[in-house]
C-alpha cells in the first residue's frame, strides 16, 4: 500500500511548495531541449544596444523619433486603431525634461522616464490596463503586510502593558525586600537592646 502513503504525504501543506518547485525545475530543464528562437517580428521594437548612445543622441536609449508635440514618433503597436494619439506621447517632453536634455547627452534615461516617455506610452497609453493591475497587486500586498504589521506583528500596546506590569512587579519586589529589611533590622535592634 505504498501509493496510499505517497498520497498521504501530498496532503501535507509543507511538502507542496517543494513538490511544485521540483516539477517546475524539471519542466525548466526540459526547456533546454526545445528549439527556441526569437521571432524578429515584434511589437514596440527598439534599436540595437548602444547604437543611440554612440550616435550621441541627447535622449539616448529611448529616442523614438518624432518632433515634440508636432510629429508622432515611430511606434509599432498591436492595434493602432484603438490609440488615436499613438506616438505623440513619446514626442512630448515636460519643460523640466527639456531643460535637462539641453545640459547633457547622458541623461536620456531620466528624461524619458519622466512624464512623456516611451515607457509611459507603453505603460499608460496602450497597455494601461496592465499597469492598473500591477499597481493593484502592489497595493494589495502592502495592505496585507501593513495590516498585519499594525495589528499584529508590530502591535506595541501589549508589550507596553507587559513592561508596565514587569516594572510594577519589580517595584513590588523591591518594596517587599525593603519592608523585610526594616523588619529584620527592627528585630536585630530589639535583640541588641
Amino acid at each position: 500500500m505504498k501509493i496510499g502513503k505517497i498520497w498521504n504525504k501530498l496532503a501535507d501543506p509543507k511538502t507542496v511548495p517543494r513538490l511544485f518547485a521540483f516539477c517546475l525545475g524539471i519542466i525548466l530543464i526540459l526547456g533546454l531541449f526545445v528549439p527556441m528562437a526569437l521571432n524578429p517580428d515584434q511589437l514596440y521594437t527598439r534599436p540595437a544596444p548602444q547604437v543611440q548612445i554612440d550616435d550621441g543622441l541627447p535622449i539616448a536609449p529611448y529616442d523614438r523619433g518624432g518632433v515634440v508635440l508636432k510629429e508622432p514618433g515611430i511606434i509599432k503597436a498591436q492595434f493602432p486603431e484603438n490609440s488615436k494619439e499613438l506616438g505623440m506621447i513619446t514626442g512630448y517632453m515636460s519643460p523640466l525634461a527639456e531643460w535637462v536634455s539641453s545640459i547633457s547627452p547622458y541623461f536620456g534615461t531620466s528624461i524619458y522616464s519622466s512624464p512623456g516617455g516611451l515607457i509611459d506610452e507603453v505603460l499608460y497609453y496602450t497597455r494601461g490596463f496592465d499597469t492598473i493591475l500591477e499597481s493593484s497587486i502592489l497595493m494589495m500586498a502592502f495592505i496585507i503586510a501593513s495590516w498585519l504589521a499594525i495589528n499584529y506583528t508590530m502591535d506595541r500596546r501589549d508589550i507596553e502593558k507587559d513592561l508596565k506590569k514587569a516594572a510594577n512587579d519589580s517595584a513590588n519586589v523591591a518594596r517587599e525586600i525593603k519592608i523585610n529589611d526594616e523588619k529584620a533590622r527592627a528585630k536585630q535592634l530589639r535583640r541588641d537592646n
Binding site: Q50, I53, A60, P61, S104, Y106, F107, G108, T109, S110
Partner: peptide, 15 residues
C-alpha cells in the same frame, strides 16, 4: 564598484 564602472562605460550617467 565594478558594476558602477560598467554602467559608466555604457555611458548612462544618471543610472
Amino acid at each position: 564598484a565594478g558594476f558602477l564602472l560598467s554602467v559608466v562605460l555604457f555611458r548612462y550617467l544618471d543610472v
